[in-house]
Every structure is written in C-alpha cells, then in structure tokens.
Computed example of a mutant assay.
Amino acid sequence: MSRTYEELEAEAASAPVEGWDFSWLNGRATEQRPSWGYLRQLGERMARASAALDIQTGGGEVLAGVPKRPPLTVATESWPPNVAKATKLLHPLGVVVVADSDEPPLPFADSAFDLVVSRHPVTTWWTEIARVLQPGGTYFSQQVGPASVFELVEFFLGPLPAEIHRRRHPDDARAQAESAGLHVTDLRLESLRTEFFDIGAVIYFLRKVIWMVPDFTVERYRPQLRALHERIQRDGPFVARTTRFLIEAHKPSASSNR
C-alpha cells in the first residue's frame, strides 16, 4: 500500500539535513555517478601531498573517506551545524576544521598548501586558491555543472532564463582559473540520470541543497509538492539530469616562471 502525501511530507520535513551525507535517500532516490571516480582520485592526490586544504568540507564526510591524508590537513566550512559535525568527525583523524565565511580572503598565508580540493563548492574563489597554493601545487575539484537538476527546479520556479542555464559552465571555470594564473590540465563534463521515487525524497533534497530552490519551504510550496506527489504516484519516478564537471589546475612552479 502506497504511503500518503501527509506521511511522506512529515517524515521528510523532520529529517536532519546537517552535513553532506545523503544516505537518508537510499531506496528513495538515485543519482548516477560520474565515470572519473572523484574519491579514488582524491585519495591518490592526498597520499602524495604534504599539506592539503579541503574548502567547503560540509560535514567532512568526503575528506573522512580518504584512506591517507597529508601530515597537515585543514578543512574549512561556513554553516555552523556542519562546522560542528565536521569537527566531531575530522578532529579524531588529525584534521583541523576552520570556521570560515566562504568569502575571500581564505584565512591562510600565501603558498600554505601543495594541494587544495573541494567537492561541490558553492563558489570557487580562484584568485584565493592560487594565492594559498605553493608553486607547483594542485587544485582538484568536482563541481556542479550547468542546469543541474533543472527539471526539478523549474517544476517549482517555472522556466528559467537562458543565462541561468549557462551558469556554472566548465568553460567559465577554465577561463577563471587561467585568469588567476593557474594552468588547467583536466576538465571533463558529464550529464547523469537522477530519479526521485517519492515526494519525501524531493522534500529532503530541496531542504538539504538549499540553493536549488532558494526560498523553499514545505508550507510555501505545498500545492506544487502535492501535484508532484500525484504525478509520481501516477507515472513513476521523477527523472532529472544532474551535471558534474571535474577540474584539475596547477600553479606554475618557480622554475617555470624564470
């Protein structure tokens, strides 16, 4: 017997959304993973680094999953519930968590790290990344690409302008990285299938990923949520396309500048 809208709403509206762990969605939504294997590649780079910075670490879940971290590893996070969660998870692993506003400047000296990473940053401050990287250092990141899950976003907000569909394009990231003095050595974009199997998954997702529908609350969007619930009940999972891009960039070594 299928569950009612009221039951699904109540469950999803009360679920905790701190951190960047999406295990609550297991069995309720699926997202195809990019082919490049970000965590595996991140682990390889972390194992070779001597000082690493993870920007916008969320609850620290991704960084905690790295098998071997450098002797000096630092993570930044701005949202207080995530700062607390990341501190609890990462401090026992020897990682320093710094509460940061996610606005420039980064609270670190020039050339402090030979590896800077970020998974799904809201904003990438390229000039600051270049500043804190040592000559020869690497920036490695998986990011949300253009028009990601816009089928869902536009269900609630209506059609969005073409210029909004163009935001977060990897070509722009390349241009910004190079403008900051970095050399992009890898840039890949993939479009991936995402499915939501019930309205509870949609509510949880929009509560957690707050920039998708910035003014989202269950109360404000209940008519649309009910309509989407009925659509899923009638037609099956709601399908959207998630976009992700991988970017790796290097700061020129001192010898290459001579």
Rank of each mutant, 00 (worst) to 15 (best):
P34Q: 06
V153P: 01
T242Q: 13
P161Q: 06
S148K: 04
G19E: 01
E163N: 13
S111T: 12
S111D: 15
F216M: 08
Y204F: 15
G59R: 01
P237E: 10
T124Y: 07
A12I: 05
A254W: 11
S148D: 14
G37E: 04
P237K: 10
L133H: 10
V153D: 01
P223L: 05
D186N: 14
H120L: 14
E18N: 05
L192K: 05
L133Q: 08
E31V: 11
A15D: 12
A64H: 11
A51Y: 09
L152A: 07
E77F: 02
D235P: 00
P105T: 07
L39G: 09
A177K: 06
G136N: 06
L157S: 06
F197V: 04
R48Y: 01
H120W: 15
A175C: 02
R174K: 15
E7T: 12
D235C: 03
W125Y: 13
W24C: 02
A130V: 04
A175P: 01
P121N: 07
N82F: 05
F140M: 01
R131L: 07
S148R: 07
F108R: 05
R168P: 00
Q224N: 06
W36L: 02
R188Y: 00
I232Q: 08
A86C: 03
L93V: 08
V149D: 14
R166L: 11
Q142H: 10
A177E: 04
R241P: 00
V218N: 01
H183W: 10
R69D: 03
V66K: 00
A13G: 04
G58D: 01
W20E: 12
W79A: 07
G37R: 10
P214S: 00
V184P: 10
L89P: 04
A13K: 03
S14E: 14
S253T: 15
P71Q: 03
A15L: 10
A64F: 11
E248V: 15
N82R: 05
W125L: 11
D102T: 11
A10C: 08
